[in-house]
Amino acid sequence: MRRMKRDLDLDLLRTFVTVADNGSMTVAANLLHRTQGAVSQQIKRLETALTCTLFVRGSRGLSLSREGEQLLEKARQLLRMNDEIWAERAEHPFTGMLRIGVPYDLVNSLAPTMRSFADAHPLVDISLTCGASPDLSQAVDDGRLDVSLVEYPEFAADGETLRIEPLIWVSGRHSNASRKRPLPLSMVDERCAFRPVVLGALSDAGIPWRTVFESGSIEATAATVRAGLAITTWLRSTVPSDLETLDPQIAGLPPLPAFSISLRTPPATTAAAMKFSRLLRESFSAATRLTPITGEATGRRFASGMPA
């Protein structure tokens, strides 16, 4: 007996992912340029086809059901493969604007991919926005960025995780700043994704702190740390070679959680953004193979936080 052919409607899956990412059918409708009623009907059609409930409505709005959570990542994979196939089959060169976002500390990591893309697609005008991760995430949601790297605590990651890295304490060589109280901190930006995690860990540990410097410039933050005026926190792969990582137990500091470096794109993306996203995945995958990212220190010695 011949089995019935069953195909998933990718348009329904795209609507599902957009609603899941935004927790709202109204927001999804605006992003997809549809009415809220049309979006609601598409979700109902998908639920009927899969014979399950994908969303539950609570006091805080829509949330994914158990079946919805199981479907979400697979739906992302299907849509990504579909979009990449169409992008590769495009017969005309990429043109127009590509708006890229990146946190301050990942600019250097992004540079090779930008150069590779620019060389391959010279007709595309690249616009780069550096900012704090919460602002970049919002810019993607609002459609002001075509693709962005965003840093999230691992337990609250959104988008596509490219790599997980430990967040570590960083000090200048031979500095005793980590032993001072209140603890002198140098933070890149008051909106930095690391800030609430770091301050929460210090608060839980009962360690008073004070801000020595806050700026959108990571170079200026590094300068205050090099001068021994403060300590800071960075992802392990971004720590400059002339600074030292602190062992929390030896330095009397609380441990910090790992962070996800995530790739974010809006639901309705461009062929150029899809190509750039693929290059980013390849770049991060290659870097991880060359230098595995773990919670253990490799390559740099731990500093005690006391003068050497």
Rank of each mutant, 00 (worst) to 15 (best):
R264E: 13
R264K: 15
A271Y: 00
E69N: 12
G101W: 01
S63Y: 10
G216T: 12
A29H: 03
V170K: 02
T18N: 03
G23H: 07
Y104M: 08
E67H: 10
D242A: 12
L145W: 00
R264H: 14
E296N: 13
W234H: 15
L10N: 02
D21L: 05
R173G: 08
L62H: 09
I100Y: 08
F94W: 04
M114K: 11
L128E: 03
R281F: 03
L183H: 02
H121F: 13
G61F: 11
L149W: 06
S203F: 14
P103D: 02
L110Y: 03
I100Q: 03
A90F: 07
P182E: 06
L279P: 02
R278D: 08
A49N: 09
P248G: 12
P112V: 12
S203W: 11
E69G: 08
T48P: 01
R226G: 03
L279Y: 04
W86V: 03
E47M: 04
F302A: 13
G143E: 06
L8T: 01
I168R: 13
A118E: 08
S260A: 15
D189A: 10
C192P: 02
L71C: 04
T232K: 05
S171Y: 09
L290F: 10
P184V: 10
S217C: 07
P248D: 05
V198C: 06
K180P: 01
A272Q: 03
L79W: 01
D21C: 06
L263T: 02
Y104K: 02
F276K: 07
L50T: 02
L229K: 12
G61L: 07
E151T: 12
A223P: 00
A87F: 01
N30K: 13
R3H: 12
L12E: 01
L123C: 10
H121E: 13
F155T: 14
G295T: 15
R195N: 13
P196D: 11
L256V: 10
E244P: 04
A118Q: 12
F302N: 05
Q249R: 12
D7P: 05
L235S: 11
R57N: 13
L280R: 02
Y152V: 15
T291W: 07
W234I: 09
I168A: 14
S304M: 04
S203G: 13
K180Q: 14
G58L: 08
L235K: 10
A157G: 06
L202H: 04
